[in-house]
């Protein structure tokens, strides 16, 4: 074991292939965590099911006149909600990692520090797609008709995923800033509830008071819901809600990603 060798100037730089391999190994870690702790997947698997059943059968008739019409309204709208709930898990995951010694282990290893974060986000995006697939599957069982083209459907899924990815940065930042995973959940719920219910996800906004309707018009979840609805149902304005959603996606990412990365660096 030669310890006295002086490293070359470039030694320790991490090449792209090595970086991808590290991200792969860390993504595998996140998948393994799910395998050992399958309950953590319940939010992705069960939530769409529970929510659809609850809303369709409890509120469906009252809101839309009949359940069939409501399925067509609710299911695309809920695509907006899935991303947000899954993104929350990223925050508590990151927080947990930092509270445990395992992050120290990673930080003393010759890997890019960002790979820990990227691996987590990749896995959570997978979880998000899974949740969306279950949501749509459940919708189809209840009689959802895909009236738009498959391309439009893919567009709706892509839009909600991109927006969900942007949300993840907010939660990464939150996860790095607060002390416990419970605090992440608590704070997140506080923000989530008004955003979710003050939107067009569950009910049309026309009957809401003026100030609330005004709020829903700029609420990204409302716009995402409207966009997904228009794309899947094959009618309604697409360009405007898509544009607003994309603007939000860009703004959220541009603001929170650099902050989150900086916070991550300073903590590592």
């Amino acid at each position: 074991m030669s310890t006295a060798t002086i490293p070359a100037a470039g030694e320790g730089r991490i090449g792209l292939r090595a970086n991808l391999r590290h991200i792969g190994a860390l993504a595998r870690r996140n998948l393994m965590q799910i395998r050992h702790d399958p309950e953590t997947l319940f939010d992705a698997l069960l939530m769409p099911v529970v929510f659809i059943l609850l809303f369709v059968y409890v509120f469906g008739g009252a809101i839309a006149g009949d359940q069939q019409t409501y399925v067509q309204y609710l299911v695309p709208g809920m695509m907006a909600m899935m991303g947000m709930n899954i993104a929350m898990a990223v925050g508590s995951g990151v927080n947990e990692d930092f509270r445990k010694g395992v992050m120290d282990r990673f930080r003393t290893m010759p890997i890019a520090r960002s790979s820990v974060l990227i691996a987590k986000i990749v896995v959570e995006l997978g979880r998000m797609l899974l949740a969306t697939a279950i949501l749509l599957g459940m919708g189809l069982l209840l009689g959802l008709e895909i009236r738009g083209s498959l391309v439009a459907l893919a567009g709706a899924v892509a839009l909600s995923t991109v927006f969900g990815a942007a949300l993840m940065w907010i939660f990464v930042l939150l996860g790095l800033s607060v002390r416990t995973p419970q605090a992440v959940q608590g704070l997140a719920m506080l923000v989530l509830m008004p955003l979710q219910f003050g939107s067009s996800i569950f009910a049309p906004t026309a009957s809401m008071p003026g100030w609330l309707e005004g709020f829903t018009r700029i609420n990204p979840l409302s716009n995402l819901a409207d966009a997904a609805r228009a794309l899947i149902n094959g009618h309604g304005a697409v360009a405007h809600p898509v544009l607003i959603t994309l603007v939000w996606t860009v703004v959220i990412t541009a603001v929170t990603m650099p902050l989150a990365v900086r916070k991550f660096r300073s903590k590592t």
Binding site: I14, M32, Q33, K100, G101, V102, R105
Partner: peptide, 20 residues
């Protein structure tokens, strides 16, 4: 970065992933 290839650290708290 070069140093990280040459060192190992065991802290007083476990630095392994408890779920794995």
């Amino acid at each position: 970065r070069a140093l990280r290839r040459r060192i190992g650290l065991t802290g007083q708290y476990a630095s392994v992933d408890e779920k794995l």
